[in-house]
Write a protein that binds this DNA or RNA. Sequence first.
DNA 1: GTGAAAGCGCTAACAA
DNA 2: TTGTTAGCGCTTTCAC
Lengths: 339, 339
Amino acid sequence: MQKTKKATIREVACLSGVGIATVSRVINGNYPVSEAVRADVWKAINTLNYRPNIAARSLKTQKSKMAGVIVADLSNLFFMQLVKGLEKELSAHGYNMILAAHDEDPGKERELVEMLLENNVAAIVTTTCQTDNRYFASLKDTGVPIILVDRVMDGLPLDCISEDNEDASFRAVRSLTDNGHRRIAVVNGLLTVSTAALRYSGYLRALREADIPVFAPYIVDAGNGTAYPATLRLFSLPARDWPTAMFCTNNRRAEGALRALKELDLSVPRDISMVSYGDISLPWLFSIRLTHVHQDLLALGRRTGELTVRRIEDGGDRIREILRSELIIGDSVRSQAPE
Amino acid sequence: MQKTKKATIREVACLSGVGIATVSRVINGNYPVSEAVRADVWKAINTLNYRPNIAARSLKTQKSKMAGVIVADLSNLFFMQLVKGLEKELSAHGYNMILAAHDEDPGKERELVEMLLENNVAAIVTTTCQTDNRYFASLKDTGVPIILVDRVMDGLPLDCISEDNEDASFRAVRSLTDNGHRRIAVVNGLLTVSTAALRYSGYLRALREADIPVFAPYIVDAGNGTAYPATLRLFSLPARDWPTAMFCTNNRRAEGALRALKELDLSVPRDISMVSYGDISLPWLFSIRLTHVHQDLLALGRRTGELTVRRIEDGGDRIREILRSELIIGDSVRSQAPE
DNA sequence: GTGAAAGCGCTAACAA
DNA sequence: TTGTTAGCGCTTTCAC
């Protein structure tokens, strides 16, 4: 057992009787070193329990193998599956990640970005909650690539990778109108978030195409919170005004709405039809299969990781990628006779 | 907008017409600086868009505000809630975290620890999957505190913080024996993991206390995977040998078992009683309330963060803390008439 | 209060 | 092949 807190490259050089540069070459394997010397150096490294100091290396090389990742919420399976895919891809390329959550607070997100920049991350991946694009614009000169995932912003020379939120939502809601529904509520999130705004647009477009006027009480705002109270409020309308169907714009809101419906003793699809954007947890515990836009977060994460690595290592032009997501037809929508 | 990729402290000093050391003092606020100079320096910092280089600072000070966190699986809500609590506490004290997952691979965990050490983290928190304690023992001389959370190991001078797995499991299974159950299956995980082993011990103790012999086919091994196939196998026993109750030793295994039961068209608690260790997702979507050991992961995470910060900043003796967890009685256990 | 200078551990010329 | 050396950007004595 060593007494030394931390062996340095100098001590390794000393013990193995070679120059400090040679040790560096052995460690990095980037320049030729004679077999004998290499063996000696490795022996010294092992006996001293030497570990290279990444901070020093990174200071010298101005490079870093650390990526910064910012998500909205660490305890939301949605983001964590995304992160899992991302981590897989990053670590496959030798990158590790500093992870943090902005909790839907744009100020906090900016602080985190600053923190990541100070830590010399090679790139920053964020599910942003910024409401205007000036902050990211001001970061152009840092030279650190920023990749927006899931939630994107316009007018910025950043890589963006997202789903076809608007169109998938449109298709989801059309599966309601196609079944004769005309009283369709939507449970929105914060419309400052791009995904929420686009999903709402898709809803509006589907209504427009079916010549259904927008009925304000059906536009439910769950904000940043759960959809549970919002849904309860929806059904405090006079019963004759109740919607016959709901579109929940993400997994959490679908879960919250289902909870409220259960409490109200309304059954899906008998009393109300439902479609959701995103997959709820434990779908097989639920008595019916929910019609929903399926999101392959692992794939989205991996794709993001791929893109991130490419951007760090090869440069190249910024891209804007939109993955198409699939509508899975379950049995949570019933045919509605015209009124 | 700056052209410079990155402003250094030297440029700030230059622009504000002071010495480099003064800039450092302004940034760190640890030494007196005259009001006028301070203002000038801040102005320069802002116009240059200067951000301190943490790697350089950390190289010089030999300190770090980064913690390393290793969990078993990023997409498991269990760990992520733990991480969320941890992150909250760490960030409240100015620490950020490098997060990674070992996926139950001891070798990978060791690699991650090495990575974290090379990155000069101030401490390492891990839900370990090491099967022997030599590796951690060999790290004593690094001087980096290691905190084991949830899963712990004996014989090591490390901080450990966990739940009373054995006793909580005992109480959970006793809630079955108290209701007259004698044919009780247990769905185990990898017994090399401390929590799994302890929970299994608790099960055995409850059986022993109730004078119930262990029946091998009831000891189901879900290993590292889901409990779904394991549960299906359990019910491939002749029907007369079916257990009347199951103890699922974590959230995932409870969910997997429930899925299998649903598929087998066995209803809880009519056909089979169930208790679980840990909370399933979306409990309110499930038709019955599951009797389970409730885990307050957020609290566990926060407590771990607290301990981590204390260990980094104040040193002190290693502690071994065991949080008591509560058994929540639901209606997933039915009284069993003696046979 | 402030500046000059040493040096944290490392890599990459450059010399040998 | 290998060793020497000059910094990377920062903090922190030590003088003034």
